[in-house]
Amino acid sequence: MFHRTFLAAALLALAAAPATAASCGNDAAGFPAWLDAFQGEAVAAGIAPGVAASALGGLSYSKEVIRLDRGQKGTFKVDFATFAAKRVTKGRLVAGKKMLRTHADLLAGIERRYGVQPEVLVAIWGMETDYGAVRGKMPVIRSLATLAYDCRRSDFFRNELLSALTIIQRGDKSPADLVGAWAGEIGQTQFLASNYLKYSVDYDGNGRRDLIRSVPDVLASTANLLKSHGWSAGADYAPGGGNFPVLAAWNKSDNYQRAIALMAGKLLE
Rank of each mutant, 00 (worst) to 15 (best):
D150T: 04
D105C: 05
D130N: 15
L147M: 06
S143V: 08
L162T: 07
A181S: 13
I110R: 14
P175Q: 10
Q190D: 07
G180I: 14
G136N: 04
L162H: 14
A181N: 07
G180A: 14
A183Q: 11
L106Y: 10
L162K: 15
L147C: 03
F191Y: 01
R113I: 04
Q117E: 13
E128R: 08
D130A: 12
M127H: 10
S143I: 03
P118K: 03
T189L: 07
C151V: 11
E111G: 00
E185L: 08
A145I: 04
S174H: 15
R113V: 12
V140A: 01
R170T: 07
L165F: 06
Q188V: 01
A145Y: 01
A176W: 08
I167M: 06
W125P: 01
K137I: 02
R158S: 13
L121E: 13
K173T: 00
V120F: 09
A164P: 09
V140F: 14
R113W: 04
A148W: 05
E111S: 09
G171L: 02
E160Y: 12
I141K: 10
A108E: 10
Y114T: 06
E160D: 11
Q117Y: 02
V120S: 15
R142D: 12
F157E: 08
L178N: 00
Y114F: 14
I186R: 12
Y149M: 08
Q169F: 10
V120R: 06
D155R: 13
G132P: 01
G187I: 10
L121K: 11
G171E: 07
I110M: 14
G171H: 06
L192T: 03
R153T: 11
F156T: 09
D150Q: 15
I186F: 09
I186M: 13
R142V: 01
I168K: 08
G132S: 07
L192G: 05
D130M: 09
E119M: 07
L161V: 09
G180K: 14
G115V: 10
R142N: 09
C151F: 02
F156L: 05
E185D: 10
E160A: 04
L165H: 08
Q188L: 00
R112I: 12
S174L: 14
L107T: 09
A108F: 00
K173W: 06
L147D: 03
V120T: 15
K173R: 09
E119D: 12
Q169V: 13
P175G: 00
D155P: 00
Q188D: 02
G171W: 12
G109T: 10
T166A: 03
T129K: 02
L147R: 00
E119C: 08
D130T: 07
A181V: 00
R170A: 00
T146Q: 07
S163C: 02
V134F: 13
V134T: 12
C151Q: 05
P118Q: 05
F191M: 05
R158L: 05
L162C: 01
K173S: 13
G126L: 08
R153A: 04
D150L: 12
L121H: 05
R142P: 05
A108N: 10
V116A: 04
G184T: 02
I167W: 14
A148H: 01
A183H: 09
V116I: 13
K173P: 03
K173M: 08
C151P: 12
L161C: 15
L162M: 15
R170I: 06
R135L: 15
V120I: 15
A133K: 08
V122H: 15
